[in-house]
Structures are given as C-alpha cells and as structure tokens.
Amino acid sequence: MKRFLKSKKIILILTVVLAIYFPLSTFAAVCVFRFPDRDVYKLYPKATNYKSVIKKVEKETKEKCEAFLGKPLDSDETELTFYEIYKGKELIGMIHPHAERGEYGTIEVVWAFTLDGKIIDFTIQRDREKKGKELNGPDFRKQFGGKDLNSPFVLENTKEINTKLLKPVQEADKGSSAIAYGAKKTLTFYKYLFQEVK
C-alpha cells in the first residue's frame, strides 16, 4: 500500500511538472485553418481536393493593402495561407482563414470565395462572442454571398460594418463588424496577392 502511495505521488509530481512545463497547445499563429477536412467540404460540397498556397506579404503589397483598407495590417500578417479548392482537376474556388477581434475575443472565420473575388460563404471556427451562434447562423451569413470589393460593405477607412448593405446581428454590432472587416481584408489580400499579380 505504501509503495502504491509512493508511485501515486510520483505520478502527481510528474503531472504538476508537465502542467507547468508543457507548452500550451493552444498557442499557435493567430489564424490557422483548424479543421480543413471538415470545413472545406462544408463550404464547397462539390470539392474533391484542396491545396495550400503560402504567400509572403512583401513591403509593397503591405503598403497597397493598408492604403486600400485605410488601416494598418497586424504585425503577424507577414505570411498568409490560402487554400485552392479543386473539383477533380478543376480549380473551383478559394479559402482563406482570417482572425479579427470581436467584442469578447478573437473570431476566427474561414472565408470561401470565388476565383474572381466574390464571397461564397463563411464559417466560424473559433469565437467567444455572446451571439456566436447567430453570427455563424444562416441569416447573417447569407448576406455576404456574392459581395466583393466593389460593394462597400465596410465603411471607408474604418472597421465598421456598413449597415446599409449588411444587417448586423442584433446586440452584436462589434462582432458583426469584425466579421465584415475580416471579409474585406481577406478579399484585399486576395486581390493584391493573386489577382493583381498575374
């Protein structure tokens, strides 16, 4: 019995040691695509395959993006990952995960958009919003369908949602704005990293 207690104690000590020293698995780059195998097919039911493309944000691109957005980029937005979505061998669309602070914490949104930069849909992979369910709900989401940079769904030089074009979720103005601004930023990155490069 005594021996058993001793081994229990060792396990306990190890546990505490591990608790103190094991690096947190939650600590990762702000926006990674956490469940590609689930979300790719949710956003593109016809998809058969996907491929990641990593783009470095060079100084020139950064300046263009910031000029367009009227806001500086985040300090860690130096390398961005996009996903090309395939149906067989045909490229049918893009995905880019993007994080923006909402009212209560980070909202991580996975954006799906067409090759010519029109939003198809999105899904929230992480958030801490009180109205998280509504923000991820179909009523709010479907408003984004077909929107592109030609429609000012975010007020110029702000991070505020343009209520004339998009109806925010009730009691979640900040969360709604964060998502809308994320959409604008995603499309802006796509424009300067893909469309205007070719």
């Binding site: 990762a28 702000v30 923006e100 914490g105 980070t106 801490r128």
Partner: peptide
C-alpha cells in the same frame, strides 16, 4: 491568441 491588447476589453465565457 485573443487579440487582446488593451485593458478594458471584454471577455466572455459562453
């Protein structure tokens, strides 16, 4: 991770 950089920001435990 929570992009929280200023005291005064809110946090919610759903």
């Amino acid at each position: 991770i929570e992009q929280t950089d200023e005291p005064g920001q809110k946090f919610y435990v759903r």
